[in-house]
Design a protein around this nucleic acid. Structure first.
Lengths: 228, 228
DNA sequence: AGCTCCCTTGACACTTAATGCCATGTCGGG
DNA sequence: CCCGACATGGCATTAAGTGTCAAGGGAGCT
């Protein structure tokens, strides 16, 4: 009756193999670089067959990316859990923070993994693709939260994109500074920059949208870009 | 004396082969989908050897990506050419526009290529990676333009990132609507959303940055995210 | 216990992407 | 006419990724 031993043992076994694989891969990749490591080496270190590797990961990139992967769901969950009255900039900052905190805070080699990703073009590419999925999820959540129609309104997509831009920029700094800079401060500063756009209200998408931006620069106006 | 016949003939020959390859590849990929087409098919259609293909493109993805590739340089050049007094939101909008215009306006299958990229994960990944490079270029240009120090100031990276977020969102809409929506209008609307952040001045990165966002929501404040 | 069903694994074969190496051909210049 | 630079093609090779099949080991049932 393995109906409730937390997890069905078969699943725990599966998790075990996955962890072993991830561990071996991360260790090798961090030491020798991404393309200097073959899958054969990884499976040798992990003690499974190559075929099994591909039953757990779709590609060599996936071993690394999946490691940071639940974060997408975490971010969305955090956003969904924020109080409804919170302005977007604050809710999104908290959402993004759960991921940044996991990367920087989690004392183990999480930072090293980020550096590996950011410094390896194929990994970066996959990571950005994953982020695009996160963005869609956040946008959906935002649209629901603010009762905006994602079909006509550009705001949800843009707001989610801006938040993830901040996310990426913070990770970049963290990586470049080798963890020396403070993640929380960086996050605050980044969101201070994008907040004016995140928290500007209405944006009525009507046909005559001639409005003035809330910019303090006293310049930028809406004007057609037309045939320049 | 081939010292000035426009281009050295050898280079024109090279361009010819490249075009042939690109044309054959794009035609096949658009019809059969990305991974249903092998390089052997492409080189057969183009009439060159497989080995030659890889002398022109680093990978199958590159055939498609390089097609939209000069755009990065174009965007940066446009930004560099905008009058210095122009607020960032306007200058960036014009910069991004040169690429959007090329995608949507250029009557040939440019839109089809965009749809192919956006609908094919590996291509999307490479495309986003390329965009990240563009972003660094734009950020550098912005930093120079506004005399901000890219080492300490997050604004250049974030502003460039926001502009490219707008870019990507517009492309997405264009792709989804099959070109039905007006590119110029979409671009204007997208930049209307992000402009408040782009054109907000100072952002002094001093140690005590407790400031109020310019939000009209009358809410969003800067507060430490800290240990939530 | 014995049986069966299902899931996981490993081994083998195979396709395809991508790179290295070398021989050949061609253009252009001395 | 010869020579060097460069582009090409063919060949061999590594590595990624997939399909298939047979064996093993739990879990449930009788």
């Amino acid at each position: 009756m393995p109906l409730r031993p937390e997890l069905s043992l078969a699943q725990r076994k599966r998790q075990l193999v996955s962890d072993e694989l991830t561990g071996a891969a991360l260790k090798l990749l961090a030491r020798k670089g991404f393309d200097a490591v073959t899958i054969d080496e990884i499976v040798l270190a992990a003690g499974v067959s190559k075929r099994t590797f591909f039953r757990y990961f779709a590609s060599k990139e996936d071993v690394v990316i999946q490691f940071l992967s639940e974060m997408g769901a975490s971010m969305r969950a955090e956003l969904a859990g924020r109080p409804a009255h919170e302005p977007p900039s604050v809710a999104l900052r908290h959402a993004v923070w759960v991921s940044i905190d996991a990367c920087a805070g989690h004392a183990d080699g999480a930072l090293r993994v980020v550096q590996l990703i950011l410094g390896t073009p194929p990994l970066l590419a996959r990571f950005l693709e994953r982020q695009a999925q996160w963005r869609d999820g956040l946008a959906q959540e935002l649209a629901h939260r603010l009762e905006r129609d994602p079909e006509t309104d550009l705001y949800p997509q843009l707001a989610a994109g801006m938040a993830l831009t901040a996310y990426g920029t913070v990770l970049q700094r963290l990586s470049d500074s080798d963890g020396a800079e403070d993640p929380a401060t960086l996050t605050d500063r980044a969101f201070a920059v994008i907040a004016p756009a995140l928290d500007t209200p209405v944006q009525a998408p009507g046909p005559s949208r001639a409005r003035v931006s809330s910019s303090a620069a006293g310049e930028a106006r809406i004007s057609r870009v037309a045939e320049t």
